[in-house]
Design a protein around this nucleic acid. Structure first.
Lengths: 160, 160
DNA sequence: GCGTGATTGCGACCTGGACGCAAGAGGTTC
DNA sequence: GAACCTCTTGCGTCCAGGTCGCAATCACGC
């Protein structure tokens, strides 16, 4: 696609593919592509799976390229992407929620003392999911809320 | 204590003891007892461990007895009680958080489809807690956020 | 009872986000 | 490539849930 503004952080083309895939999904659902939507998608893809962007961050990064995009536009884009299943939002604690691509599989552990976010493989949670399904009939999705607690460093600090 | 206004729902005196215990803790920490604080504590104790009161509910129930208590007073009382470790607040989903006594041991599972709150014994979570502590060094407390997912009824509905 | 400092009520304020509306812009058709 | 239809945007306003500053009030040790 000649003339296309380059993606924010292109790692060997995979980001471009990810962006185009999301664009295709949006179009397939009957929605339109606009500059602000593409920029929002690019920010999300470029952030990778291990940064935890809040809406304000996304607004800021989109505005680097398109300074006049309204906040509400970005909120609406994020809602549309979430409805499509492309992204999810995660509550990390009090305060704003964070957004990232839905295809990652890690779970967030947030230290209540220092705010550090530790990532845990989703496999850790599989046994509990099974148990809850079998015993309570509840199909749990742990991603939507982080799990609070105390990280190793803060545990050591308070023990010492 | 003659002349004491009766506790909201006294089940054989245990509620009175619970209230007095909390009052004693507050006093021990150098704080003062007021009518609004006592009423707030009574509402929390009377609610038992299996109702999920939001701040607005608590304000409403306190005002049945003391109509002029300000919202902010109750928020401040709740903060004080939480700081003492007497109560905790739990985020059940989007919207306001709920308050209950800290001594209960159940975990909340919230259905994203119908909003039903299912309670699961905290023992279910012990294995995962141990695993997270051993492998990641993270001491998890699952109570602060509910776990979202789909309840048995809604799973059946969407499958059928 | 008195003094003092914690607590209260009031109202303003704050954050994070949703919404209604008119104007603007994708994308399809011809 | 122009017209048209409808989706999307920007703006401003509004909302929920909660927090805070301040003067007045009240609990409680003496």
């Amino acid at each position: 696609m000649p003339g296309r503004r380059e993606v924010l952080r292109n790692r060997g083309g995979t980001s471009v593919n990810a962006v185009e895939g999301i664009v295709a999904k949006l179009r397939a659902s009957g929605q339109r592509m606009t500059a602000s939507r593409r920029a929002t998608i690019e920010v999300l893809v470029a952030s990778g799976n291990h940064r935890h962007l809040i809406a304000e961050d996304i607004v800021g990064e989109v505005r680097v390229h398109l300074p006049d995009v309204a906040e509400s536009t970005i909120y609406r884009t994020l809602s549309a992407l979430e409805e499509l299943g492309v992204i999810i939002h995660v509550h990390m604690g009090h305060g704003p929620s964070t957004f990232h691509l839905a295809d990652d599989t890690h779970q967030h552990l947030v230290c209540q003392a220092c705010g550090t976010v530790v990532e845990a493989d989703a496999n850790f949670f599989q046994a509990l999911r099974t148990k809850l399904r079998d015993r309570v009939g509840f199909d749990a999705d742990f991603r939507h809320f982080a799990i609070t607690g105390t990280c190793a460093a803060c545990s050591a600090k308070s023990a010492g």
